[in-house]
Design a protein around this nucleic acid. Structure first.
Length: 588
RNA sequence: GGAGGCGUAGUGUAGUGGUUUAACAUGCCGGCCUGUCACGCCGGAGAUCGCGGGUUCAAAUCCCGUCGCCUCCGCCA
């Protein structure tokens, strides 16, 4: 094919089919490049040697579908194009044929200018012709291939689960599917195959995986689509370590096979609590430092009231040091302060050290320097390890909020100051043992999902103090992106029952929604656990893209709209009638 | 649900109250050109400045509304 030819093919006769990529008409000499899935190759024609072919090709335009039969010829040394994969050869045709005409395309498939995404999505079939999208889909394909071959070799079975299933409470909004089976009956598209994969464990298929589509009717993000693909994995008779080991070896293999990068094992680990404390988020980006430092003790007695009063009332004063941040302009700092407010902080305080941090107040610039004692500033500097030229950003308030705001600020600052070093930096991290429950508007909800097992040593606290119970959940984070989430599940129905009780899911509701699962668990459920890496996000990182839309052939735009087909769209009245549905236009 | 950004020939941008007949590049159409590969040169066509309303002698430009796309917060077990 076009992109696969090189000097070794010189002399061969080939037939190529593809699209016209570009034309360079020099009068009596004409070059055009043709493209297929594999790449681009140049075809050369001379008016004096092949007047008839020449005249025909002169009429061709970009994106015409053409067939060329001819000889691969090595280019002379002075005409080799080193920037082109096939630049050492060219095709001298003995027959050319136009298979189909093309209108002038509304977006270029060859220009490297950034096209408005509306147009890219509207004309996705053209956008997909671009080398960039070809590369991305190729990366995604090889990723899938690599994952499958690894898991197959590890003795996993790929088993499918239904898309038409029933809605279960909690979690995201479901996509509902009406059916003529009953006016009040709906399928729901699965948010994940969670229940089915656990049932497969119960059935004895102890190593299962599936590349499976999941559906959640929630707002989109750069790394979130209403439908997305998970590599769903579940195993029986395993604990956390077996899962970690499997996943680590899997990623090592994938990175080696897909992008030729060797990643080191084992991955780092930290607890959820440590992640929040040190980085203010459950998905820290470890490509840069800027750890959060708790300065509450250093400022507890401060004359600066905001500090002392916050600490006094049980809050914290935390911050992080921006290396060489003292150079930041006043407008940068103002912008950060503005950002911190947007994230919900009362304000953002800062201390910049222009000179030796241990020299007291002389080297300090800060909006609150008038309120600070030299000893206090020295203590702050030594606690956070600030050097000359560093900048400390500080937030005071309730612990949870402070962590959240600083966690977001840390990412913004790193982004703005370009602290991420190099493209090939891969910082994997396991974040483990988050709490089993959190309090939301007065009632308990699962942090992960209700089937996650509590940590054995915390089991006894389940009924007395649910919020203090840690779970056997683990998240895999790469460069600040949550790549996978999983847990060891409850296989004992008594504990599952207790958890449902704490979640305040009534026995009746339990019976209705999960009755089949609880019943199943009474017939010999093995201990089991699993994990579900997000395929789109992995592909995105491997392809070096910033959004999963660029690794999905036909993604959705904001609000879940599909700009090419126009979905979601109205349906015929007759279809509604068959489903016994009536549209209420006043509602909304 | 909220905040911000963007919307100008096919495409990417400039223009932020009046010397604008809305500019530049590319693409498109026509002509010339025998080693180009971002080919080059010459000529031409192509825009009711997202849409609606308002302010003004005058609006792409200011104001209000609206639609669309992007990013983020909330949300996403």
């Amino acid at each position: 094919m076009c992109g696969e030819l090189n000097a070794r093919d010189a002399g061969r006769s080939v037939t190529l089919m593809g699209w016209v990529w570009s034309l360079r008409d020099l009068g009596k000499l004409l070059f055009f490049e043709m493209r297929d899935r594999t790449g681009v190759i140049q075809v050369t024609l001379r008016a004096d040697e092949q007047p008839e072919l020449f005249a025909r090709v002169k009429q061709w335009r970009a994106e015409f579908v053409v067939a060329v039969r001819g000889a691969v010829r090595e280019r002379s040394a002075d005409t080799i194009n080193p920037d082109m994969a096939t630049g050492a050869v060219e095709i001298i045709p003995d027959e050319v044929k136009m298979l189909n005409y093309s209108d002038v395309p509304p977006i270029s498939t060859s220009a490297d200018e950034e096209i408005d995404e509306r147009l890219r999505l509207r004309y996705r079939y053209l956008d997909l012709r671009s080398p960039r999208m070809q590369k991305n889909l190729w990366v995604r394909h090889r990723l899938c291939q690599s994952l499958r071959s690894f898991l197959n070799e590890e003795d996993f079975w790929e088993i499918e689960t239904p898309y038409l299933t029933r809605s279960t409470p909690e979690g995201a909004r479901d996509y509902l599917v009406p059916t003529r089976l009953g006016p009040d009956r709906f399928y729901a598209l699965p948010q994940s195959p969670q229940l089915f994969k656990q049932l497969l464990m119960l059935s004895g298929y102890d190593k299962y995986y599936q590349l499976v589509r999941c559906f959640r009717d929630e707002d989109l993000r750069a790394d979130r689509q209403p439908e997305f693909t998970q590599l769903d994995i579940e195993m029986s008779f395993v604990g956390e370590e077996e899962i970690y080991s499997l996943v680590e070896r899997m990623f090592q293999r994938v990175f080696r096979e897909v992008i030729g990068v060797e990643i080191e094992l084992p991955f780092e680990r930290m607890t959820y609590e440590e992640a929040l404390d040190w980085y203010g988020t459950d998905k820290p980006d470890l490509r840069y430092a800027m750890q959060l430092v708790d300065l509450s003790r250093q400022v507890a007695e401060s004359e600066f009231r905001i500090f002392s009063r916050t600490v006094d009332s049980g809050g914290v004063v935390k911050g992080f040091v921006v290396p060489r941040g003292a150079d930041a302009s006043r407008s940068d700092i103002d912008a950060w302060e503005q950002r911190a407010r947007e994230y919900g902080a009362a304000g953002l305080l800062w201390i910049a050290w222009d000179g030796n941090p241990l020299s007291g107040l002389d080297a300090v610039r800060s909006p609150i320097s008038a309120h600070l004692e030299p000893s206090e500033v020295r203590e702050i500097a030594s606690a956070c390890g600030a050097d000359a030229g560093d900048l400390l950003l500080l937030v005071a308030g309730e612990r949870r909020e402070v962590n959240r705001v600083l966690g977001l600020m840390r990412v913004d600052v790193a982004d703005q100051l370009n602290l991420v070093s190099g493209e090939d930096s891969w910082e994997f991290l396991w974040v483990v043992q988050p709490p089993l429950f959190e309090l939301e508007e007065g009632s308990y909800t699962s942090v992960h999902h209700p089937f996650t097992a509590p940590l054995a040593e915390d089991e006894h606290k389940l009924e007395r103090d649910p919020l203090s119970v840690r779970s056997r959940q683990y998240d895999l984070v790469l460069n600040g992106v949550e790549l996978a989430s999983g847990s060891i599940r409850n296989h004992r129905s008594d504990i599952q029952q207790t958890i449902f009780d704490i979640l305040d899911i009534s026995p009746q509701e339990q019976q209705e929604k999960f009755g089949f699962l609880l019943e199943a668990f009474s017939y010999g459920a093995p201990p089991h656990g699993g994990i579900a890496p997000g395929l789109d996000r992995i592909a995105m990182l491997l392809a070096g893209e910033d959004t999963i839309r660029d690794v999905i052939a036909f993604p959705k735009a904001s609000a879940g709209r599909e700009l090419m087909t126009g979905a979601p769209a109205e349906v015929r009245a007759e279809q509604l009638k068959q489903l016994a549905l009536r549209v209420d236009r006043d509602n909304q």
